[in-house]
């Protein structure tokens, strides 16, 4: 039985299309409409057309600030840790051990992030690392419920998501290109900057997008390791929708978050494209 091209396309895209329409486009449209509304007297949503919610965003500035500082910082920190690790796994390690080591990278995922975050509460809490530091005479440290704790938590949680895309791009890099670079007179560090790095940028882009977008919406880790002091937009949203029941204001915040993400991602992609297309002497004196 022949299926027409048209039907085939419908069959292929239908399920995903329905899914996205029902669970993404529609809710987003609702949120967008709500963001111009008001809080009903008893909480929830009352129809209106006002920009009042957007005008009020400044009252939640701290949540935006934390998110916009810690999400990029977490992404960057994850990248700085993941890149050398991925490089080691893809280029340096004896292939015999590679699979085993890759499995080790994802082993933490076998335990719920909730449980692992509890572990961090202990480690960073009063009786954990600070005690150790104090006993060693290294001074009095308060770690838990600080931006640092949240940063540690998010980097720890999202590291594998950065390692894998970078690993894949480095692994498929043709090693003969590095030999060619050496043959043409490039010392190892220069061939890294001129050949390895530019050719691994797609992996870097994928990894950092993945981590950054997830971090922008992060809720659990700031909740647990920030102790209500270091909260993200996600925490503010939970508060607005579930506690103060101000759906209109919550919607305005959500819309702003999504818009910010779009802007940042677009800028970042442009930036990567530019270095990707740039000469090979980027980053080299």
């Amino acid at each position: 039985m022949a299926i027409s091209r048209h039907k085939a396309r419908l069959l292929l895209l239908g399920p995903a299309g329905l899914w996205y329409a029902a669970l993404l486009v529609l809710p987003l449209a609702v949120v967008l409409v709500y963001s111009f509304g008001e809080r009903a007297a008893a909480g929830g949503y009352a129809p209106a057309f006002t920009l009042a919610q957007y005008a009020n965003l400044g009252s939640r500035w701290a949540a935006f600030k934390n998110t916009l500082v810690l999400a990029p910082a977490g992404t960057l920190a994850a990248l700085l840790i993941a890149y050398p690790l991925a490089y080691f796994l893809a280029v340096r390690v004896n292939p015999k051990w590679r699979t085993a080591l890759l499995v080790l990278v994802i082993v933490p995922f076998w335990t719920s992030i909730l449980i692992r975050s509890y572990a961090w509460i202990y480690l960073l809490g009063g009786r954990g690392i600070p005690t150790l530091l104090a006993d060693l005479g290294l001074g009095d440290w308060r770690l838990i419920n600080t931006p640092f704790a949240v940063l540690v938590g998010i980097v720890y949680g999202y590291l594998p998501l950065m390692v894998f895309p970078v690993y894949v791009s480095l692994e498929k890099l043709d090693k003969r290109l590095l030999e060619a670079a050496a043959d043409l007179g490039a010392p190892p560090w220069r061939s890294f900057l001129q050949v390895t790095l530019p050719l691994s940028l797609p992996g870097v882009a994928t990894g950092s997008m993945l981590v950054f977008i997830l971090l922008m919406g992060e809720y659990l880790i700031p909740q647990m390791l920030g102790g209500g002091k270091v909260f993200f937009v996600g925490n503010a949203l939970v508060d607005l929708f579930l506690q103060s029941r101000n759906w209109a204001f919550g919607s305005a915040m959500s819309v702003t978050l999504v818009a910010t993400m779009l802007v940042v991602v677009t800028l970042y992609m442009r930036f990567l494209k530019r270095i990707g297309a740039a000469r090979d002497d980027i980053g080299v004196m």
Binding site: R176, L177, E179, A180, V195, P198, L199, D280
Partner: peptide, 15 residues
């Protein structure tokens, strides 16, 4: 002070 033409050329794809 020698240069090589590699078997599969090994040209830099990003240049």
């Amino acid at each position: 002070p020698v240069n090589m033409v590699f078997q599969q050329y090994a040209l830099f794809p990003h240049m």
